[in-house]
Amino acid sequence: MIYLSPPHMSGKEIEYVKKAFESNYIAPLGEFVDKFEDLIKNYTGAKAALAVCNATSGLHLALRVLGIKDSKVAVSTFTFIGSVNPILYERNKPVFIDVDEYWHMDAELLEKAVKENDIKAVILPHIYGQVADIEPILEICKKNDIYLIEDAAESLGAYYKLKMDNGEWKIKYSGTFGIFGVYSFNGNKLLTTSSGGVLVGNDENLIKKARFLSTQAKEADFMEYVHKEVGYNYRMSNILAAVGVGQMEVVEERIAKKREIFNWYREFLDEEFMPELSNTRGTRWLTTVVFKDKDPWEVMKKLRVNEIESRPLWNPMHLQPLFNGAKAYLNGRSEELFKKGLCLPSGTTLTQKQVKDICEIVKSS
């Protein structure tokens, strides 16, 4: 079976996991949690990082720390539901925003939504390993005193090149523009800890507060268990962090391979692919195609018969039964992408021949 995006170990993970076992720091914390957080900080340039059990919990902590509850939160409609569920956890109401030609939140629609609603925060997903056109969105948030939280679950390693006042270019990674960002290390991501996420930010006090809440909000000044507010069991274990340390050693290698796979698909298939903003580098976590005249569901069936996994593009959130009646600012693009698009196998062990074979099956569908 050729899977969509299976895990790919570096070879070092088992060595680090063994070391964690030998230390007997299996859970909840230990030296590898600290190392993993440091590696994420050093790689992305974020000042603070918190390893958690998954990216969804990271988004929840972000909203909780910022005190966003019983309010309205704008979020892209073209995303995984993990971007949206944390909004509900704090009794907020999502305001869905359709996407631009790069498949990310449309800044003009966001501006319209901000004018018509008292929006307290924006959750901006960077999808399929690409980077959103973040500068106009950041400007809207700054102008209206709105918190920007980046859901960079799918885009660890993707970056934006910013031109500085002195004319030089500066690389800034997805997840580091807003007050918080979150990365996913789920089993199908660019890097995996089997299950896990990392919350990052540049305000160390806010991350410190999130860390406190993620460990059941236990007051540190008491030997006995004292709790003054609601907390959560959201921390990553030392074992999973050990896997993450091994994975971080090959992050650039994995990105290079993902981009190579994308280029093979583009060579062998005469279809439309997810565009990449100029002055950015996406990771091409998943190669996504939009068919000109094929039914993606029929293509998916043909691939499945040949033991090849594929998936439809994100089913827009404003179409989900869970969000009947929710406000949505639409231009039709997310619905069109869902209707015509497909995610193709993008695992980093794929060969050029395998990609070519997959494309021949797609073309014959």
Results as ranks from 00 to 15, higher is better:
Arg91Asn: 13
Met317His: 03
Leu303Cys: 07
Val73Met: 12
Lys115Ser: 03
Ala328Lys: 14
Gly332His: 11
Lys356Thr: 04
Ala210Tyr: 12
Leu330Trp: 09
Ala158Asn: 02
Val95Ala: 13
Ser71Gly: 01
Ser5His: 13
Ser195His: 14
Pro296Thr: 11
Lys356Arg: 14
Asn54Phe: 07
Phe338Arg: 10
Tyr89Glu: 10
Gly282Met: 05
Gly196Gln: 12
Leu156Asn: 05
Leu4Lys: 04
Ala241Pro: 09
Gly175Leu: 03
Leu322Asp: 10
Glu224Tyr: 13
Ile149Gln: 13
Asn42Arg: 12
Gly11Ser: 03
Lys189Asp: 15
Asp357His: 07
Val355Thr: 02
Pro94Gln: 15
Gly11Thr: 02
Arg304Phe: 11
Tyr89His: 13
Thr215Gln: 15
Met164Pro: 08
Glu309Tyr: 01
Asp133Val: 01
Lys143Arg: 14
Thr44Lys: 03
Leu337Met: 12
His8Ala: 08
Met1Val: 06
Lys172Trp: 00
Arg64His: 13
Gly67Thr: 15
Ser5Asp: 10
Lys363Leu: 09
Asn324Leu: 10
Arg304Glu: 13
Glu37Gly: 03
Met236Gln: 14
Phe96Ala: 00
Tyr234Val: 14
Val52His: 11
Leu124Gly: 07
Phe273Gln: 00
Thr44Val: 04
Glu260Tyr: 00
Cys53Asn: 09
Ala153Tyr: 05
Tyr329Met: 12
Leu206Asn: 07
Gly201His: 08
Val251Gln: 04
Val17Ile: 15
Ala46Thr: 12
Lys189Gly: 05
Glu219Ile: 04
Tyr25Val: 02
Leu344Cys: 01
Gly45Tyr: 06
Val114Pro: 07
Ala46Tyr: 06
Asp118Val: 01
Lys189Ala: 09
Glu204Arg: 10
Leu330Thr: 14
Leu342His: 06
Leu50Gln: 08
Leu29Ala: 11
Met274Ala: 12
Ala256Gln: 06
Phe36Tyr: 15
Gln354His: 02
Lys72Trp: 02
His104Gln: 10
Glu219Ala: 02
Val289Leu: 06
Lys161Val: 08
Val114His: 03
Thr288Glu: 08
Lys172Leu: 01
Val251Gly: 06
Tyr265Thr: 00
Tyr147Arg: 00
Lys18Ala: 09
Asn233Val: 11
Lys294Ser: 08
Ala241Thr: 04
Glu219Phe: 00
Trp314Ala: 08
Leu286Glu: 13
Gln320Arg: 14
Asn186Trp: 09
Leu199Asp: 15
Lys112His: 05
Tyr102Ile: 00
Phe262Leu: 10
Ile14Cys: 07
Asp357Cys: 02
Lys339Cys: 01
Ser310Thr: 11
Asn279Thr: 01
Trp169Met: 14
Gly11Arg: 11
Leu350Trp: 01
Lys163Gln: 12
Ala241Val: 01
Thr192Glu: 05
Trp169His: 01
Pro321Gly: 03
Gly178Pro: 14
Gly175Gln: 03
Phe177Leu: 09
Lys302Phe: 00
Glu260Asn: 01
Gly30Gln: 12
Asn279Cys: 06
Val226Phe: 05
Asp221Ser: 04
Pro321Val: 08
Lys72Tyr: 15
Glu252Tyr: 04
Leu88Phe: 10
Glu271Arg: 03
Val299Leu: 05
Asp145Cys: 02
Leu322Pro: 01
Glu31Ile: 14
